[in-house]
């Protein structure tokens, strides 16, 4: 494993921990999109089915369990926790899952590495992950005051994606036969979605002002 991949995984882990800690300690999920969190739970469930069929490494299995566990915990907090759920504003978080899930199913059936149940699910999870952040970005745009932790969560997720791209470039040159068009293109699309957010994040950081996205 190269340093970019490891750094990417660690930022991903940090983003999830920031979000879980925010929800757990201040008992509020204000500004957090349940839709995005549910999409991530679907992404991890469909992609990590291979923990039952292939063993890659202890690290790999451990991280998969962490991402599965954390995404389900966050969804549980927002839906079921008796205090946290009160801070969830479902009138702002209106993005419809189905508009993202259905096209990803169709795309996965058409474009996959092999037309098998596992490979179609794998492709589906990559396509869905690429767009899963959209409800969160829409919610951020609607929220007048983005709190620091929610901003940091999205920022860390964006950094994780960017590091994965560097990791693919590195692997392309250092490993033989490392070509994964589906992963690369959907990963690139996913990272581009953060570009706009990054721009405003750095602006607010530079001028030391509260992060606010233009409507």
């Amino acid at each position: 494993m190269n340093i970019f991949r490891l750094a990417g995984d660690m930022t991903h882990l940090a983003s999830v921990l920031v979000l879980l800690l925010k929800i757990h300690t201040i008992k509020s999920c204000a500004g957090v999109s349940l839709k995005t969190q549910e999409l991530y739970a679907i992404v991890f469930t469909t992609r990590y089915l291979d923990i039952f069929t292939d063993f890659i490494s202890l690290y790999n299995t451990f991280m998969k369990l962490i991402f599965l566990g954390s995404s389900y915990s966050i969804v549980w907090y927002i839906r079921r926790h008796k205090i946290v759920r009160r801070s969830y504003d479902k009138n702002q978080d209106t993005f419809r899952h189905v508009f993202l899930i259905l096209p990803c199913i169709v795309l996965a059936l058409l474009i996959n590495e092999k037309l098998t149940f596992k490979e179609v699910l794998w492709a589906f999870s990559l396509y869905l992950e690429a767009v899963a952040i959209l409800p969160q970005l829409v919610l951020l745009q609607r929220t007048k005051n983005i709190d620091n932790l929610t901003g940091q969560y999205v920022f860390l997720l964006g950094v994780y994606r960017a590091l994965y791209i560097v990791n693919w470039i590195y692997r392309y040159f250092t490993e033989t036969h490392f070509v994964h068009w589906i992963t690369w293109i959907s990963g690139l699309v996913q990272t581009l979605l953060y570009a706009d957010f990054f721009y405003y994040y750095f602006q607010s950081w530079k001028t030391n002002q509260k992060l606010q996205l233009p409507a």
């Binding site: 890659i56 790999n60 991280m63 998969k64 994964h180």
Partner: peptide, 10 residues
């Protein structure tokens, strides 16, 4: 390091 597979990624 596993070669030729991106499926070792998360």
């Amino acid at each position: 390091e596993e070669q030729g597979s991106g499926k070792d990624e998360l």
